[in-house]
Amino acid sequence: MEVTLSILLGFMIIGAIFALHAKDLLSAVIAAGIVGYSLVICFLLLKAPDLAIVQVVVETITLIIMVAVVLDSTREELKVKIDTQQIFNISLAFIFMLALIFFFVQATDMLNPFGQHSLRMASAYVGETAAKTGSANLVTGVLFDFRGYDTLGEATILFTAAIGVLTILRIKGKK
């Protein structure tokens, strides 16, 4: 189990690195698709079928939007020369990485090994969701009952994003 997940994650890292260094924007977008679709298999292995269904559809729609944008503009990657600004950016990135690695090492002391119980709330949610909401799918029960505010906020964000896209992409005003 852990070995399979490690191989998939390594595959995702290779795909991500290729997406950042590709010379063609279309191949960069498709390499980002590698990462997304590997994530679907990871979710299936981790016993999360809800997430797998959502991720496979959402990844497809994201790819459609990204490919439409890339085909509509340009496919060529910029020709970047290494100058002082670029060196400064790269060193800044490594400083950020070192700081994050420091915090990660600190945080892993608190983390249980993979496959062990990590969150204390889990037993309460697993035990009482079915009895209190009557929903056989516990994820839906948590999502629409105990954490209804999360769902409402998510729907609001989606609504705002749709309005924002409409506003940004409008050329001629509506009468």
Binding site: I65, A68, V69, F144, A155, A161, A162, L169, I171
Partner: peptide, 22 residues
């Protein structure tokens, strides 16, 4: 929520398509 998600995603897609046509 299902109707809302479907309509929002479709709105985003149609906005991109109309922009391209214009």
């Amino acid at each position: 929520i299902g109707i809302e998600v479907a309509a929002a995603l479709l709105t985003i897609f149609l906005a991109l398509l109309i922009y391209k046509e214009e």
